[in-house]
Amino acid sequence: MKVVHYLNQFFGGLGAEEQAGIGPEIRGEAVGPGRLLEQVLGDGSTVVKTIICGDNYAAENLESVMETVVNEVRDSGAELFVAGPCFVAGRYGVAAGALCAAVQAELGIPVVTGMGVENPGVDLYRQELYIVDSGENVAEMRDVLTKMAAIAKVTASGEDVGRPAEWGYIPRGIMKDEIVEESAAVRLANMIVAKTQGQPYETELTQTGFEPIPAPPAVTDLSNATVAIVTDGGLVPAGNPDNMPAIASTIWGSYDIATVDNLEGEDYEVYHRGYDNRHVLNDPDRLVPVDVLKELEKAGEVGKVYEQFLSMTGLANPLANSRRIGQEIAENLKSAGVDAVILTST
């Protein structure tokens, strides 16, 4: 198998941080970890090209490095592209992920990389790529490359790679059907028995990891602040002007409340299939508390109630979609001069 291998300046033997600004250099042979990669791939596999690039250069010129790498891989007729492993080197990981994703998309050949789970490249590319969990210890190089080689060979043969835990890669969030002998009830009971006895067991429902969010500073003087109401409960004006879906919404809406002092059920609809909507339809203030917030505005406790409330349907949304919507809503409110938000969630 013909292989192109990407390394940063450190693993490529050019130097440490002082060489991080160096642009892509091409070598016609395996370099450093690439020699080990040839060994563990076996079957006469050859690294026909090694591309070495400084971490800072790659981070600052990612688009052009991507173009260079895709062209080099194409010209070499490679059947496999390998980047890293990068362990917990952040800039290296982000570049390796981007390059693997670009080669995979442009050339359709197998790609594989390796990173420690804390590497920021993991969150960015785990869904698209096989990223072997390298841990942070560079001394594990042979073990990591062996896992990367195993995944590369299976992918190249067109077969499916098995479960993350068995193959040593970071879960991509892919669900696959599987025939099992025991019913869900039996499996559940076995898990509970194992748990109560302190025995190991494996959950079938892994939780997504969430990054900590830095807390925004307090708004100490609310009597001079503009406060907005946002809800994920799916409240929209009657007629549903934005066609808000009742499940898995990809949109959000912004609706005028400048001239109303409380919300009347007849003026609103709820598009959210995840809770019994009748109580909110009877009185939408139960979800979007315009009535009391406007009273507090009149009383001077709140400077201003923002003249729109923002709404979306928070039900069965993929995380990436929810993050995008959250960012869009935050940007919208920020540019409108809103100082603080009350988010109501059903």
Binding site: G233, Y275, D276, N277, R278, H279, V280, D283, D285, R286, L287, P289, T344, S345, T346
Partner: peptide, 9 residues
């Protein structure tokens, strides 16, 4: 909040 069906009611 008070309840899933009405956080503020």
């Amino acid at each position: 909040g008070k309840g899933i069906v009405y956080p503020l009611g």
